[in-house]
Each structure stands twice: as structure tokens, then as C-alpha cells.
Design a protein around this nucleic acid. Structure first.
Length: 443
DNA sequence: CTGGGGATGGGGCCC
DNA sequence: AGGGCCCCATCCCCA
């Protein structure tokens, strides 16, 4: 019987004039390897189910799982650390206990480890991802991300068939270099949600062309964390695969059902997303919520929800003046005050402090800023000066057909006691439901 | 090319 | 839990 190395050697040193021969040899070699891996995996799984040679005991929510340390070592960074640290050498079984996720979740992950099949549903995906993050299983995180992305319809339209399923004999899926063993099968549940929609791509800064196939890619914890944590706006989005599949065209205005999908996503958040081993001064355990997309943890669920927006791309606060959208009300307000209201009592040109007397508001499109009287004279932009009396309604006129009385009910007006009462228009804050707008885009 | 400032986004935390 | 404030990091624009 030929060994794999022999087959490979033959394949690589085949007759130069016979490429077909090379091809078929290579193919059969690959097939053979896949078959071998598949058989090996099945054998290991069988051993696990019969509890043969299981030298690793994992206790989750009181439920005991038995597995092979070699297999866990190969699939999980957490177990790598655990097993490398100690106990691997002695003959006794290694034990691990988890409370950060449920037994069902661990069962899904363990089944994946031993079968290459990850049984994701819209209900369990968040917790599986969270657990995978905890266990440092990047391939599982990658699949969960792909699943969530599909559910959120962030990827391009070509995912008509929502079930990402690889043929049994196929090798590792695209973009997943380190899928543990031979086959990886991912069955996405919410078929109807995405396939029937053909929804427009969600807003975002950068996006691959619509024809680009769905990419189930790896997102390491570190990259995810960098993407989420403190990186500036541009890099944040470019780092996020989510945004790689979103459109430049709609980066400012075009909404999507992301808000709704994000709500669904939030609704599936488990009560305890993660427990980090942090202790208070009095040695009491400190509960923290862990982001399922990255390693970031927060004290409050509300903060996690806020944080999740940087992953889901949800931007519920649009600026009525320029259609730019924001993740937070305070960011919208800040933007509005600086860009459209000229709240800052600083001359944009000479940077000197100006008062109502020593400076005026200048309008350029929807943008407003202040100039001191000297700079106004120098630059000769008197024509752009705002007539404060009429400016109140200047921008409002361009903000849609809606009756202003009705609008005022919903608007949060800014504090008029603040600095610049004469500075143009009022802030209109309105959390929008994207669905209607999205429907129009479809039509 | 570089440094400074503005705009924006994200985290912590208080109310 | 939401709103809001403060702080900081990053990116972009412009001199």
C-alpha cells in the first residue's frame, strides 16, 4: 500500500509531459488524505462516545463531558494552555470546569471538534461564539461570524442559498485555514430571512463588490479586539469584516434592516454572556459581560449593547441635515452642534474666541461655522453670512415634507440657554426605523 | 513630508 | 437601562 508521502512524491516528480497524470495523482492523494482524516475523526468520535481512552474531563453546568486531551489540545487555545501548563504528563485525567457557558453550548462545540459539523442556530450562535472565544477556537468564531453575518444580511446578495454547506469530501472551507479536521459543515438556520429578501447591502464605509462571494473568514480575537477597541473610525470599519462587505455608496445614508436584525441579535444574548475571572477588592467575583465578537468585556449589559453596535454596524441616529448616521445620540448631537450649528464660539480662520458681537455665523451648504469680523472682511464672504432671524428655518426647509408641528413632538431640542442661541438650526434627533426606507430602496 | 487641529468613534462611569 | 459627560485614540484635512 502506498503511503501519502509516496503518492505526493510521485505527484511532484511525475513525467513532465504528462500533466494529466500529475493532476490525477494529486487529486487521488488529496482524496485519500481527506478520507483518511475523516475515518480517523470518526474513530476518535466513536472512542469518545464509548468513553474509550478519554483522558480529559470537562464539567459544564454539572454535566460531565469526556474527551481526548490530544484532540482538545489541537483545537482549542484554552486547552492548549491548560494542558501545557501541567497535568499533561502524568497519567491522571485532566479536569476542567466551565461556568461561562451552558452544557448545550459546549456540546455543540465538542461535536464540532469531533465531527467538523457545527450545529448553529440563531438561538445558540451568540453563546457558541462566546464560548468559542473563551476557548480560543478561532475557526468556530469564524463560522459563527459568518453565520451572524448571513443572518444580518451583511454579506452580498449572492447568498441566496443560506445554507453554507460543504460537501463531505471537501477540504477546508474558503478562508478557514485551520479548520480542525477533514470536513466542516455549517448549517445556517434562518433561511427565509435572508434568501427571500435580496435586501440592499447595509450601510458601511467600505465594501467589496456585490458579486463577491460570501467569505467565512477568520477573525482572531486580537484583530477583533483591535477593531472594536479604540481604533479610529476608518480603521475600525476597515478592520471589520462586516464592513468589508458593505457599500461605500450607502455609507452615509442608505439604511438597512440592520437595526431590526441587531435587535434580534441582542434578544438572543444569553443572560450571562461571559464571566471573567476578575475579583473585587473584597474577593467577591466581579461579573462582566463579554462581547461575543471580540475579547472586550464590560460591567453592564447596556454597555455591551452599545459596544455591539460597532460590530453590527447599527447606526440608529441619523443627522437630519446631512444624513450622516451615528451610533450614539451624543455623537449625533456633537456632530450637529459643531457642523450645523456653529456652536463653538471660535473663529474658524484665526481660531480666536468670538462673541455674538465680534463674530458672525457663516453658512456653507448645511455646514455652519463662525468667523470673526476681521476674518469676514479679509475673506470677503459677507454673502455667506447667516441672517439669524431667518436662519432658524433655513435647514428645516430641506428636511422633508413633514409638518413642523408634528416634528417638534419628536424632536429633542437642544438647550437654548447654551452658548449660541443664534446659531442656525435646531438639532433634530430621531431614532429611525430603517425598514420603510429600505423598502423604498428595493422598489 | 509633517505636525496640528478637527471630526469621529469607543470605553468608563456617573446620574 | 438610558442619557450624558469626559477622556482618549485614530483618521483626515490642511497649512
Amino acid at each position: 500500500m502506498e503511503t501519502l508521502s509516496e503518492i505526493r512524491a510521485k505527484g511532484s516528480s511525475g513525467t513532465p509531459g504528462d500533466p494529466g497524470h500529475q493532476q490525477s495523482t494529486r487529486t487521488s492523494g488529496a482524496d485519500m488524505m481527506a478520507e483518511h482524516q475523516s475515518r480517523l475523526l470518526q474513530q476518535l468520535d466513536e472512542q469518545r462516545r464509548q468513553e474509550l481512552f478519554c483522558d480529559c474531563h470537562v464539567l459544564v453546568e454539572g454535566q460531565l463531558f469526556k474527551a481526548h486531551r490530544n484532540v482538545l489540545f489541537g483545537c482549542s487555545g484554552y486547552f492548549r494552555m491548560l494542558l501545557a501548563r501541567g497535568g499533561a504528563e502524568c497519567g491522571r485525567p485532566v479536569s476542567a470546569t466551565f461556568e461561562a457557558f451552558s452544557a448545550d453550548t459546549f456540546s455543540v462545540i465538542l461535536d464540532f471538534v469531533y465531527s467538523g459539523r457545527l450545529d448553529l442556530t440563531s438561538v445558540n450562535v451568540i453563546e457558541v461564539m462566546s464560548a468559542a472565544s473563551y476557548l480560543q477556537m478561532n475557526d468556530v468564531i469564524g463560522f459563527c461570524k459568518g453565520f451572524i453575518r448571513s443572518s444580518l444580511d451583511i454579506s452580498a446578495k449572492e447568498t441566496a442559498d443560506q445554507c453554507l454547506s460543504l460537501p463531505e469530501e471537501s477540504s477546508t472551507p474558503q478562508g478557514v485555514d485551520n479548520a480542525p479536521i477533514a470536513q466542516v459543515e455549517l448549517c445556517a438556520e434562518p433561511k427565509s430571512e435572508v434568501s427571500s429578501q435580496g435586501a440592499p447591502p447595509p450601510r458601511g464605509r467600505r465594501r467589496a463588490p456585490p458579486s463577491q462571494p460570501i467569505k467565512v473568514e477568520q477573525m482572531t480575537e486580537s484583530t477583533a479586539y483591535r477593531a472594536a477597541r479604540g481604533s479610529g473610525r476608518r480603521r475600525t470599519w476597515s478592520s471589520l469584516p462586516v464592513e468589508e462587505t458593505t457599500s461605500i455608496a450607502d455609507q452615509q445614508g442608505a439604511p438597512s434592516s440592520k437595526a431590526q436584525k441587531a435587535d434580534e441579535l441582542y434578544a438572543t444574548l444569553p443572560t450571562i454572556v461571559g464571566v471573567v475571572g476578575v475579583f473585587n477588592k473584597d474577593s467577591s467575583p466581579s461579573m462582566r459581560f463579554k462581547c461575543p465578537f471580540c475579547t472586550h468585556t464590560v460591567k453592564r449589559k447596556a454597555d455591551l449593547k452599545r459596544h455591539l453596535r460597532c460590530h453590527t454596524g447599527e447606526r440608529p441616529y441619523p443627522c437630519e441635515a446631512c444624513s450622516k448616521r451615528f451610533t450614539r445620540l451624543e455623537h449625533l448631537r456633537s456632530h450637529f452642534e459643531t457642523i450645523h450649528q456653529a456652536r463653538k464660539l471660535v473663529c474658524r480662520k484665526c481660531k480666536r474666541h468670538v462673541t455674538e458681537l465680534s463674530g458672525r455665523v457663516v453658512c456653507e451648504g448645511t455646514r455652519r461655522y463662525r468667523l470673526c469680523n476681521e476674518c469676514i472682511q479679509e475673506s470677503g464672504c459677507e454673502g455667506l453670512l447667516i441672517d439669524t432671524a431667518s436662519s432658524e428655518s433655513a435647514l428645516l426647509m430641506g428636511m422633508g415634507e413633514e409638518d413642523e408641528d408634528d416634528k417638534e413632538k419628536d424632536w429633542l431640542m437642544t438647550d437654548e440657554d447654551d452658548l449660541a442661541v443664534d446659531s442656525g438650526t435646531d438639532l433634530i434627533i430621531q431614532e429611525v426605523d430603517d425598514s420603510e426606507e429600505e423598502q423604498e430602496l428595493h422598489n
